[in-house]
Amino acid sequence: MLQYLVILLDKTSTSFCHYKAPSNSPKEGRTLIPLETLRQGIRFGMMENLMIQYVYPDHELPEEYQEVLESIDHSKIKPYGQEDADVLVVDGFQQVKATVPVVLRVTKKELFAHQAEVAEMLADVPRLNVVLTDVETFTEADFEAYKECLTRLAANVERLYVDGKSPQLNLLTDRMMLSQMNNCGAGDTTITLAPNGKFYVCPAFYYENEADSIGDLEHGLDIKNKQLYKLEYAPICRHCDAWQCKRCIWLNRKTTLEVNTPSHEQCVVAHLERNASKELLQNIRKHGTFLPEQEEIKEIDYLDPFDKRDTWQ
């Protein structure tokens, strides 16, 4: 069931996920969403009872937009440095402080190189979402390095908990808190409105191919094979308990050609996080009662559920 409408306020709106958005230079195509399109988008959201998330570009919006933007309850995703945001996005490694959740978009190389600074940031932001922008390029050596990186980050998270703080790092703490899949929901619970007035599964689908829309404001939504965006129709994911995995529909299609099938790399990365979360949960509990309602995360003998497919039936 649809719950969220992401509205890209400009073609150069900041990326808050795996995909790359066009740069903010006027040359590369700043295209502001027309005011009337924005009004219609908001109206659509109201009629469908959707929660609206505006994604801002790295330049100021004209004054006349403010009144329209404020005509409905919403949250604001903005590039780091802007004020009045609900979520701030840092593109490329940069050590920041903030009073709102921060999305840190980094490559694996950046993460491995700056893991100590990332660990330090946990005390300076209420929540840190690390988004790896090159998951599909992970090699066996990268998996090893990532495992080590997660272990070190987990040690820091544990220390902060012992000190009475409650750091949030999506890679490690989400899985400890979850009791079911918590995926991004693109195409299922969330859709995106682009500046051209068309709907897309998520911003990445818009940037990859504008013709790949799932409807428009004039004719409404038309999501073909919409069941394939649901967990029950994802043969690998529905057998998986790496519940923190974003299950990126766009990366799925990019790497396997199917929106419901993740790549080996995405599965292994998610399982390394899952296993690190398991260790972290056990280690924190050694210091006292912690999340007593949550079950232990089970020991498993695989990193890619695909390898266990013979046991599914």
Binding site: E258, P262, F306, R309, Q313
Partner: peptide
Amino acid sequence: NKNLLRPFLTLDRTT
């Protein structure tokens, strides 16, 4: 490219 085989090798009737 083994990633491109994954959808085929996990296909089942009901899905």
